[in-house]
Amino acid sequence: MSHKVEQFLGLAQRAGKLITGEELVVKAIRAKQVHLVILSGDASDNTLKKVTDKCRTYDIPLRLFADRYRLGHYIGKEQRVVIGVKDYGFARELLKHMDQVEGGNV
């Protein structure tokens, strides 16, 4: 199932439906421009708290997944700690597959 998550992340990146970087993602959460936030399992405590609080406040699903190096690799970039999914369809599919893999609710 993890392979499906990797595939959907790569597709979403190529389609231009992902944003990365803590500040950009937090800004997108506030503007309700993302339908899912993916946070690496090795994010700092400060980043974890900040992103978790924003997602709860704005009712955006959040999942912990992989580590910063694998997240970056899945989207063809350097390491990434926070990814925001801008497209509802991609977010729905990613949630479905992530919940089967890790049960990653935060």
Results as ranks from 00 to 15, higher is better:
Lys96Ser: 09
Ser40Asp: 08
Leu18Asp: 03
Ala43Trp: 03
Ile75Leu: 08
Ala43Phe: 07
Phe90Ile: 01
His73Asn: 12
Leu24Arg: 14
Asp87Val: 03
Tyr69Pro: 00
Glu102Ile: 04
Arg63Gln: 12
Val26Phe: 08
Gly89Asn: 15
Phe8Ser: 00
Asn105Trp: 09
Lys17Phe: 02
Pro61Ile: 02
Ala91Trp: 03
Ser44Glu: 07
Phe8Cys: 00
Ser2Asp: 10
Ile83Gly: 02
Ala66Asp: 09
Val106Phe: 11
Val5Asn: 08
Thr57Leu: 13
Asp53Leu: 14
Gly76Pro: 13
Leu24Phe: 11
Leu94Phe: 04
Thr47Gln: 10
Asp99Thr: 12
Phe65Asn: 08
Ala66His: 11
Ser44Ile: 00
Asp59Leu: 10
Leu64Tyr: 13
Tyr69Arg: 10
Asp67Gly: 05
Ile60Cys: 09
Ile83Asn: 00
Val106His: 08
Arg92Glu: 13
Ala12Arg: 06
Gly103Ile: 06
Gly103Asn: 12
Ile19Lys: 08
Asp45Tyr: 07
Thr52Gln: 11
Lys50Glu: 09
Glu78Gly: 10
Leu9Phe: 09
Phe8Trp: 11
Leu24Cys: 01
Val26Ser: 10
Glu6Thr: 10
His73Glu: 15
Glu78Gln: 10
Leu36Gly: 03
Val81Met: 05
Ala12Gly: 11
Glu23Lys: 12
Gly21Cys: 03
Leu94Ala: 02
Lys32Leu: 13
Glu93Trp: 08
Asp42Glu: 01
Val26Cys: 06
Arg92Gln: 12
Ser40Ala: 15
Thr47Leu: 15
Asn46Thr: 13
Arg80Leu: 04
